[in-house]
Design a protein around this nucleic acid. Structure first.
Length: 352
DNA sequence: AACCCGCCCAACCGCGTGCCA
DNA sequence: TTGGCACGCGGTTGGGCGGGT
């Protein structure tokens, strides 16, 4: 299809707008509306192309534009919507009155993206980063955590711990999934059995995790009690029912479990409202891992509220998206256990 | 004080798509 | 059905600015 010749004309002014040009554009549109953007510059006495006028109006001069810093709430909305919509900036902007797609796009690229990367979250997939570079850097990553710990910087070290743990957990799931996809899955295979029997291939992490026994301890914390009783022990019975998560019987189901686990905080987590009550499925997931439900679920990794409580406000905003959806309101808290154990030396992510 | 460098964001570029003759 | 026009959108650019050296 032919491209618009709108801006091909030479002699038209480009670059920053002057106050006089702004005034002309505002006055014209207030009087006549924008009508045809192509015709507008001529009618308004502007030596600009229509496209430039449209951009200037929609991104800057429109009276309903809300300027200034993005609030935490807006930031959360952007992150949530981006996890569902991707780089559909205009669609995201539609949910944020007064904000333009351009503004949101810029804010994403300059602030949110970096913040997510720093937290070990892939800004594209909204999942914990599992790229090889990150895994390769895990020893340094943990060394920094140790250093910060020694220096009394609890905020950073705890966050780094959680990120490392999240990374390991995600890697575990991915390895498991890969292994599972390479071999036929028995009809009644249990994901918890699979997880328990899975070999962990993240060598860098494994080295840091120490002995197999220690790794086993980590797995126990990640997975909760044994495969046959997970519904009655650490794994709250409400989790599987409320979230519509059932034990998968095939690879596709398992894949969905994987997706769900990332978004919902993983096995062993449950979702609760601010009163500590479990949230019913109609509030969270319609059924069968309906992906559309993600538009109301913050696409965030599970983080121990204890850790968040120790975090600085500036870095905790992403996790605030859970807001009323407090994870792990049950006494059993996998991330908390893991961090507690690591702090006490049972699991040497941090050497005290 | 001068220079450098990285960040931020307004504006541009080019493609996709809908509409209409 | 086809081709041209207009608009919207997402990616990219580059100038201004502030902090660091």
């Amino acid at each position: 299809m032919a491209r618009s010749p709108c801006c091909d004309d030479s002699g038209l002014k480009k670059g920053p707008w002057t106050p006089e040009e702004d005034q002309k554009l505002i006055e014209y549109i207030q009087k006549h509306g924008h009508g045809s953007w192509r015709a507008l510059p001529r009618l308004a006495g502007l030596n600009r192309c229509g496209k430039s006028c449209r951009l200037r109006w929609t991104n800057y001069l429109r009276p309903d534009i809300r300027r200034g810093k993005f609030s935490d709430e807006e930031e959360q909305i952007i992150i949530n919507l981006h996890s569902v919509l991707g780089n559909k900036w205009s669609a995201i902007a539609n949910q944020l009155p007064g904000r333009t797609d351009n503004e949101i796009k810029n804010y994403w690229n300059t602030h949110i993206r970096k913040k997510l990367l720093q937290m070990g979250i892939d800004p594209v997939t909204h999942r914990p980063r599992t790229d090889l570079n990150l895994l390769a850097n895990l020893p340094q990553f943990l060394a920094v955590a140790n250093l910060n710990n020694l220096m009394g910087s609890w905020d950073n070290s705890l966050r780094l711990q959680a990120e490392a743990a999240q990374l390991a957990r995600s890697q575990l799931f991915q390895n498991l999934l890969q292994a599972n996809m390479n071999t036929p899955t028995p009809p009644n295979s249990n994901p918890f059995n699979l997880l328990r029997s899975a070999s962990f291939q993240g060598q860098n992490f494994a080295e840091h995790a120490g002995s197999n026994a220690q790794l086993e301890g980590l797995l126990s914390n990640l997975l909760g009690p044994g495969p046959d009783d997970h519904h009655t022990h650490h794994m709250p019975s409400t989790t599987s029912t409320n979230l519509g998560i059932q034990e998968p019987s095939n690879v596709n189901d398992y894949n969905q479990i994987l997706d769900s686990s990332v978004y919902l905080g993983g096995f062993g987590s449950t979702l609760c409202d601010s009163n500590g009550s479990s949230i019913s499925d109609q509030n969270l997931i319609s059924s069968s891992y309906d992906i559309s439900a993600l538009d109301i679920i913050p696409p965030l990794v599970s983080v121990d509220p204890k850790m968040e409580a120790k975090s600085t406000p500036s870095t905790s905003t992403t996790f605030d998206a859970w807001g009323e959806l407090n994870l792990d309101c049950e006494p059993t808290n996998y991330w908390g256990d893991m961090i507690d154990q690591s702090s006490s030396g049972a699991w040497p992510l941090i050497s005290s």
